[in-house]
C-alpha cells in the first residue's frame, strides 16, 4: 500500500506561483478559484524575524474530517496512495466538507460540487509527478510514497527538520514543510 505525501522545502520556495498556474492549467480550475496557493508567513519580534513562503493545498489527511462528514460518500479516500478525492456526481453541494476542513482547502466549483487538489491523481496513475511538482523552477517540491523508506520524500523527512500545518487539529496531514 502506497501512502502519497508531498514535501516542500520552504528554504528554496520563492513564491513564484508557477505551481498555482500549473495546477489551474492542468486541472482546468475556473477563474477566481484556486486548488493551491502561496502563503507568506512572517513571524517573530523585530529584529529577530522569520519568514517562510509556502505552497499550500489540500493536505490529504490520514484522518480526513471532510470525508467523515460527507453524507453521500462523495468525499472519499482513493485506493491509490490514500489521496482524498471527490466523486462529482455523488456530491450534493451541502458544503459540510468545506466547513470541516481546518485548512479551508476546498471550494464549491461553479458547477455545484465540492472541489479541491487531487495530487493530480490522473498524472500519478500514469507514473508522472503532480503538475505543481513537475513545473517548480527551484525544485523545492517533492512527491512520493511515505511507505517506501527509500523514496525521496521518506529520506528527506529523516534527514531534515519539518513542520506540519495545524497538527493540533488531529487530521494527520500529508504535506510536510522542510524548515
Amino acid at each position: 500500500m502506497a501512502r502519497f505525501a508531498m514535501v516542500i522545502d520552504t528554504r528554496q520556495c520563492v513564491g513564484c506561483m508557477d505551481c498555482v498556474v500549473a495546477c489551474k492549467t492542468e486541472n482546468g480550475v475556473p477563474e477566481g478559484f484556486n486548488r493551491d496557493w502561496i502563503v507568506q508567513d512572517v513571524n517573530g519580534i523585530y529584529p529577530t524575524l522569520h519568514m517562510e513562503i509556502r505552497s499550500e493545498r489540500c493536505n490529504h489527511c490520514d484522518n480526513p474530517p471532510c470525508v467523515y462528514c460527507c453524507p453521500t460518500g462523495a468525499s472519499h479516500v482513493h485506493d491509490l496512495g490514500g489521496v482524498v478525492l471527490v466523486h462529482h456526481e455523488k456530491c450534493i453541494g451541502c458544503k459540510a466538507c468545506l466547513a470541516a476542513c481546518p485548512y479551508d482547502a476546498r471550494f464549491v466549483h461553479p458547477e455545484g460540487y465540492a472541489d479541491k487538489c487531487t495530487f493530480c491523481i490522473h498524472r500519478v496513475e500514469k507514473g508522472l509527478q503532480p503538475s505543481c511538482v513537475a513545473v517548480c523552477p527551484t525544485y523545492c517540491m517533492y512527491f512520493g510514497d511515505l511507505d517506501d523508506p527509500l523514496s525521496e520524500v521518506s529520506l528527506l523527512l529523516t534527514s531534515r527538520k519539518y513542520h506540519l500545518l495545524l497538527p493540533e487539529t488531529g487530521t494527520q496531514p500529508h504535506i510536510y514543510y522542510l524548515t
Partner: peptide, 21 residues
C-alpha cells in the same frame, strides 16, 4: 507578531468561511 499573506481568494472561503447563509 505573525503576518500571513495568501494569494488564495476562493468564494465562500476567504477572507473567512461563509458557506452557510
Amino acid at each position: 507578531m505573525l503576518e500571513l499573506t495568501t494569494t488564495r481568494h476562493n468564494p465562500m472561503i476567504d477572507p473567512t468561511l461563509h458557506v452557510w447563509g
